[in-house]
Design a protein around this nucleic acid. Structure first.
Length: 301
DNA sequence: AGCGGTCAAGTTGAT
DNA sequence: ATCAACTTGACCGCT
C-alpha cells in the first residue's frame, strides 16, 4: 500500500496558510504586533485542521506542514513563545484537534524545514539557529502528532566527509523530540544517496529518498539498491519523494518541478512497497489525485 | 481588483 | 558580482 502525500498547500481548495514579514511587523506597535501574530497563528491552526479533513475526504494519506505555520516563530527580533500568544489556548486547541483527527483518519504529518536549517555548517551560530528552528518544529510535531522533520545535508564546505562528521557531533546534542523525528534527504546538487546512506546507516537516522534529486545528481547507485537501503534505515513507514522535471529530462534545468508527476517517473520498484511518497508538484492536490488514479491500476491506493 | 516591490535566515553554481 | 534555486510565492501598499 502506497500512501501519497500532499505538500504544504492546496491548489484549488480554499484552504490557505497566511504569513507576514519582519519588516511589516517592525512598523507596528507591540500590541498590534501581538494581535497580528496571534491572528495568523490561529488562522493557520484552523487551516491545518481543514487540510487534514480535506486529505481524509480525498483519501490522501499524508500532509506536509509548512514551516511558517507559526510565522517568524524563531526570528531573532520578533520570535515568540506559542504559550505567550493572546489566543494560545485556542491555537493549541486546534493543534490538538489536528492530532486527534490525523490519528483517527490515519493521516501522516511531516515537516520539511527550509534551506537555512542545516547541521553541517562550520559556523556554530548557524548550527545554533538551526537547532532552535528544529526545536520549534518539534514542538508543533508533539502537538499535532507529526513524526518526521526532514532536512538536507546542507553545504559541502569543500569536504563532505568532514561536514557530515560535524552533523554526527550535533546529533548527540539534540533533544529526543527532534532526534526521534529528524531525517536526511538527498538533494540535487551536493549530497547524493551514496553520501547520505552510509551516514544514515551509521548514525541510525532515517533516509528520505528523493528519486528526482537522485536522477538530477547521479552517483552510480540504482534506484532499487537505494530504495532497499533507505527502507532499512526506517523503524516506521519509510518516506520517499517524487517529482517530475518541468521541462523534461533533456531540456536543461531538470531540477524545476512540473505541475504534475509524469507517470513514467514513478519507479516501478516502488509500486509494491508499503511507503509514504510525498508528491512534490505545483498542482498540489490535483497532482496527488491524478497519481492516485494511476497507481490504482496496480494497487489499492 | 490588480500589480509591483519586497521579504530572516545558507550555500552553491550558472551567468 | 549577481542571481536563482531550494520543500512553499504571499503580502503590503499603491493605483
Amino acid at each position: 500500500m502506497i500512501r501519497l502525500g500532499l505538500c504544504c498547500k492546496l491548489f484549488n481548495e480554499p484552504i490557505k496558510f497566511h504569513t507576514t514579514t519582519a519588516r511589516y511587523l517592525s512598523g507596528l506597535s507591540s500590541a498590534e504586533r501581538e494581535n497580528k501574530i496571534s491572528g495568523l497563528c490561529l488562522h493557520n491552526a484552523k487551516s491545518l485542521l481543514s487540510a487534514i479533513r480535506f486529505c481524509h475526504q480525498q483519501k490522501i494519506g499524508s500532509f506536509r506542514i509548512n514551516s511558517r505555520i507559526l510565522p517568524l516563530k524563531t526570528h531573532p527580533d520578533f520570535g515568540y513563545d506559542i504559550m505567550q500568544i493572546d489566543q494560545a489556548s485556542e491555537i493549541v486547541g486546534f493543534f490538538e484537534q489536528c492530532a486527534v483527527l490525523a490519528k483517527q483518519y490515519n493521516i501522516r504529518l511531516t515537516f520539511h524545514p527550509d534551506q537555512f536549517v542545516l547541521l553541517s555548517s562550520p559556523n556554530i551560530e548557524i548550527t545554533r539557529k538551526s537547532i532552535e528552528e528544529l526545536e520549534y518544529q518539534a514542538e508543533i510535531c508533539e502537538l499535532v502528532g507529526a513524526d518526521v522533520i526532514n532536512i538536507h545535508g546542507g553545504g559541502a564546505y569543500g569536504n563532505k566527509k568532514s561536514a557530515l562528521n560535524r552533523v554526527t557531533a550535533v546529533l548527540k546534542n539534540l533533544s529526543d523530540s527532534v532526534r526521534t523525528r529528524l531525517t536526511f534527504e538527498n538533494d540535487d546538487r551536493i549530497y547524493c544517496p551514496k553520501d547520505l546512506l552510509p551516514f544514515c546507516e551509521e548514525n541510525d537516522v532515517p533516509f528520505v529518498y528523493d528519486v528526482h534529486h537522485h536522477r538530477c545528481l547521479e552517483d552510480g547507485l540504482f534506484i532499487e539498491e537505494v530504495t532497499d537501503r533507505a527502507i532499512k534505515t526506517w523503524d516506521r513507514e519509510p518516506l520517499f519523494h517524487i517529482s517530475s522535471p518541468k521541462y523534461g529530462w533533456d531540456n536543461g534545468k531538470t531540477n524545476l518541478h512540473h505541475d504534475y508527476i509524469n507517470f513514467i517517473d514513478f519507479p516501478d520498484y516502488w509500486k509494491a512497497l508499503n511507503i509514504t511518497v510525498e508528491i512534490e508538484a505545483k498542482a498540489k492536490e490535483l497532482a496527488v489525485v491524478k497519481m492516485q488514479k494511476y497507481l490504482k491500476q496496480y494497487i489499492g491506493v
